[in-house]
């Protein structure tokens, strides 16, 4: 299952914004953990959401699984100039 998720994530990556970063809006977040549970890479997205910080994990493939699964619209993609320059 996880392998399949990873594969799918890498495939989806072709179609998603690779230069983007997932950003949480923590006033919407209830720490349910659906994002972390569905991350194919195993990133603890919920922890970033708790602190309201962008998911700046070098392993994040911005596959969008967490964004799509969050039942409360906490997560969104954002294209940030500084993301590109600071890596």
């Amino acid at each position: 299952m996880n392998m399949w998720r990873t594969f799918r994530a890498l495939f989806l990556q072709q179609k998603t914004r690779m230069e983007g970063v997932v950003v949480p809006d923590n006033i919407r977040c209830v720490q349910c953990g659906i994002c972390s549970y569905n991350c194919p890479i195993g990133i603890d997205v919920r922890r970033y959401a708790w602190w309201g910080k962008p998911i700046r994990d070098s392993h994040c493939v911005t596959c969008g699984e967490c964004v799509a699964r969050c039942p409360r619209g906490v997560l969104r993609f954002e294209v940030l100039e500084q993301t590109l320059s600071s890596g």
């Binding site: 209830v30 720490q31 349910c32 953990g33 972390s36 549970y37 919920r46 039942p71």
Partner: peptide, 21 residues
């Protein structure tokens, strides 16, 4: 634990262990 998460535990979207942030 995440009390609002109980709803998603009930529907089966997350297992119990995910309720603990």
């Amino acid at each position: 634990y995440s009390r609002p998460g109980l709803a998603y535990y009930l529907t089966g979207e997350i297992p119990e262990r995910m309720l603990f942030p």
